[in-house]
């Protein structure tokens, strides 16, 4: 037994199941996120990636299965436990979901005050620091309507980070962005990963995530059908579904050259 298996994963899901409108959207999905690891969730549209991520913090309550935070099972029925779980699990949405009526600073500050009960002054100070961390200290007073997509997503990341989460769930954080704005958000995510943040990211940015991920999870029809390190799965002769899928989307998005290079590993 290795040493790390004695420490429970930060977040673990066991046999999650979810049926929506008659569809088996999640079919006994299990996964574990040990401290500091970065996992990447890929798969075709409708595979259930968003549903899985939102089940992890009970934004969508799973029909069956259990969620464990640092080895302790979370009771989804208890409102107190839910709020506690969500404070420790940061979430980033595809379409940012900044609070439209609040400035960047207020967006980061509001949950610190309401949920953590911090004073306005302390919350403001921390919020400013988090905004600085994503390079947006000078945009603190702007409202979402006046921010670019990339800036909005960075504010959203700052907002989640301010809660000091133990793990982050990112659901296609760059797919609503114009190509030239993707880089600034990816840079922030890379920074997070390198600083040891535990993360699970659903994304179509294959080459970027291949360089960060400890593990790729390939999902289809509500199941994780392949998992492994990116080098393993993306090796040209691996014959994996993951490789076939990645080759296809990379071709479409013009990433083929980079891909070719990486899949030669």
């Amino acid at each position: 037994m290795s040493a790390e298996s004695l420490i429970p994963p930060v977040l673990e899901a066991r046999t999650l199941g979810k049926t929506l409108g008659g569809n088996r959207v999640l079919d006994a999905v299990s996964l574990a996120l040990p401290k500091g690891c970065v996992k990447v969730l890929i798969g075709p549209s409708g595979a259930g990636k968003s549903t899985l991520l939102q089940c992890l913090n009970f934004l969508i309550p799973p029909d069956s299965g259990t969620i464990l935070l640092e080895g302790r099972e979370v009771n989804g029925k208890s409102r107190r436990e839910l709020c506690a779980l969500r404070q420790q699990v940061g979430m980033i949405f595809q379409d940012f979901n900044l609070f439209d009526h609040l400035s960047a600073l207020e967006n980061v500050r509001v949950a610190l005050m309401k949920v953590k009960g911090m004073s306005k002054l302390d919350a403001g100070e921390l919020a400013l620091a988090e905004l600085a961390r994503v390079g947006l200290a000078d945009k603190a007073a702007l409202y979402p309507a006046n921010l670019s997509g990339g800036q909005k997503q960075r504010v959203a990341i700052a907002r989640a980070l301010a809660m000091d989460p133990k793990v982050m769930l990112l659901d296609e954080p760059t797919s609503a962005l114009d190509p030239e704005l993707i880089g600034e958000v990816l840079a922030v995510i890379r920074d997070l990963a390198q600083n040891g943040m535990t993360m699970i990211v659903a994304t179509h940015q294959i080459s970027f995530s291949a360089s960060l991920a400890d593990e790729f999870l390939f999902m289809e029809k509500g199941r994780v059908i392949e998992s492994g390190s990116p080098t393993e799965l993306l090796r040209r002769d691996s014959g994996s579904r993951t490789l076939a899928f990645c080759a296809k989307i990379s071709e479409l998005s013009g990433e083929a050259d980079e891909m070719g290079a990486e899949s030669l590993i």
């Binding site: 939102q54 913090n57 969500r86 404070q87 940061g90 379409d95 979901n97 609070f99 949920v115």
Partner: peptide, 15 residues
């Protein structure tokens, strides 16, 4: 999404 984001931060429905 606005309500989702609020819940994801740990707010209660009331908050």
């Amino acid at each position: 999404g606005q309500i989702r984001a609020a819940l994801a931060l740990g707010m209660t429905t009331r908050q």
